[in-house]
Amino acid sequence: MAQSTAIVATTLSKSFDELKAVDAVTFTVARGEVFSLLGPNGAGKSTTISMLACLLRPESGDATVMGYSILDDPQAVKACIGVVPQEIALYEDLSARENLEFWGKMYGLRGAKLKQRVDDVLALIGLTDRQKDRVDKFSGGMKRRVNIGVALLHTPDVIIMDEPTVGIDPQSRRHILDGVKDLNRQGVTVLYTTHYMEEAQELSDHIAIMDQGKIIAGGTHDELVTIVGEKDRIEMELSHSAPELLSQWGALEGVEAVSAENGIVTVLVNDSNRILPHLFGAASQHDVRITSVTIEEPNLEAVFLHLTGRALRD
């Protein structure tokens, strides 16, 4: 096994009764990168992760984590991963510190080492001040942070995070995303699942888009976006309608199409940065004021829509 890979999943499959939850999923996560599985509800992200964490036995296929097979050597796999479950898997009637201490012991930490790691993790998740409070007194975001902290205690090589930002406030979310980046900077490999394309885009070196048990596309963000072949989309509102202006815009180099509907003009371009000044210049010549501009670069949402005909989020 190449030393540069952290996770290699090879045609992993799992069915629940008739439902093929994960269907021949294959991907590779390099060491030290953040890899995202992006997909809507029910895509099979959690099921894939459960197999990698040796919680579920794959029906067929295999995977290796840090070179150990999940089928042949689950104990070795478990020792080098930290799993952040989608649920808040904590004891809510215990304090944050008690939870961390308990889970640390379950990961085999003892004594001074345990105390040190618990202190470190509390600082990392920003809950040192609240460590003595019971978890059921915490906000959703704080619970999520403890939930993540538990998986970091034994300093695993690979962290597997299953939708760690679901249902929390923007501030906690920011805290978590920054935390993931920090971890990654320290050399930890992160396998991240989400159905927020912004998160996948911001965090990931590589992204696999998953739908109905299958990986339907994979690569870097920029690679994925080219699948759509779509241009930047500039939407504008004008002070008054000016058909001559629209035809002048359409003639500009780098403009693919111009259309107007309900008072909103949409211009498809190759490179919005380069074209925009020309658009404004032409408008001035025609005494038309541009009252609002929105630029939309092609995104993963569009990729998903392009590939499945459905929106990523319901």
């Binding site: 898997a89 889970w103 379950m106 990961y107």
Partner: peptide
């Protein structure tokens, strides 16, 4: 509760 909260699954991701 352990089962419901996912703590049981998490316990199973340790070497227990």
């Amino acid at each position: 509760l352990e089962r419901k909260s996912g703590s049981l699954k998490r316990l199973l991701t340790t070497n227990m």
